[in-house]
Amino acid sequence: MTSSEFVCRTVLVTGGNRGIGFAIAAEFVALGHRVAVTARSGAGPVGSLTVRADVTDPLSIDAAFTEVEAAIGPVEILVANAGITKDTLLLRMSDDDFTSVIDTNLSGAFRVVKRASKGMLKARYGRIVLVSSVVGLLGSAGQINYSASKSGLIGLARSVTRELGARGITANVIAPGFVETDMTAELPEAQQAAYKKSIPAGRFASSEEVAKVVAWLAGDDAGYISGAVIPVDGGLGMGH
């Protein structure tokens, strides 16, 4: 197959109702794929199917997949993007602050990958993209829970690659740095300037730039890439 031959796939993006997840879903819609998003509230972009799901609840995930499969077909491309933060310093971090972030960001990814892999194994085709973060590689003060959860996605993807790689299934990780979102827009200008000073590119990424990398990794041109960590961080995490 050449890169000019488009194949329409069924795509599921978790947490696709806002931010990076919304942009990823919109990119797949623009490319002509059948796209569904999971969300606890809100909706995905126009042209996508929104299903309610909580990634901490296996029954909720199974119901969401069943709904997607009935409406647009078995999931061929999974983007595990759903995540939360509960930032605070180590000595102030409660057990719940830690475990709830791990349960959503890491265990949640495990649950959706496990459910999606059933159909992928049957089809002998699948693309799994896990949305990590530069802090999963660099660490971040006040984000021990978040950094640990995002670092764990790398081990998950690489182990999935070793288990399922011979079945036409790839599993990769993207590690975005600072991205232009509502959250970064609310930062004081001086703080934004300080962050940008630490980024060789001198700016934040757009959500669309992250989305295009995900779409490429999920495409046939990247079929021989698996277990990789692709930084989308303007050079911030070089060497990690």
Rank of each mutant, 00 (worst) to 15 (best):
G202W: 13
L138I: 00
R115D: 08
L12A: 00
P188A: 03
I20P: 12
T99C: 04
E186M: 06
L137Y: 03
E5P: 00
G108P: 14
G142E: 10
G235S: 10
G21A: 10
S48P: 13
A148T: 15
D95L: 13
D97F: 08
R40I: 03
T104Q: 02
T181E: 04
V79H: 02
S206I: 00
L236W: 15
G239D: 07
L49M: 13
G19M: 12
S100G: 04
G136Y: 06
Y224M: 14
A205P: 13
D182H: 07
L138A: 04
T38D: 05
A123W: 07
F22L: 12
K150T: 10
S147I: 11
V79Y: 03
K212T: 12
T38L: 01
G227R: 09
V213I: 10
F6T: 00
S4D: 15
T104Y: 09
D62C: 05
C8K: 14
K122F: 06
S132D: 10
G223S: 15
K86S: 10
A26F: 11
V129G: 00
I24L: 10
E163F: 06
V112I: 11
E189K: 04
S117D: 01
D96S: 11
A39L: 08
S206R: 13
Q191S: 06
H240W: 10
L217R: 04
I128E: 05
G168A: 00
A23V: 15
F22K: 01
R111M: 08
D54M: 06
A116L: 09
V179R: 01
I154D: 00
L121P: 04
Y146M: 05
F6C: 04
I84D: 08
F28C: 00
R115C: 02
V35E: 10
Y146L: 01
A194F: 13
T38V: 08
E67H: 05
E209M: 11
R40E: 11
A222I: 13
F65Y: 11
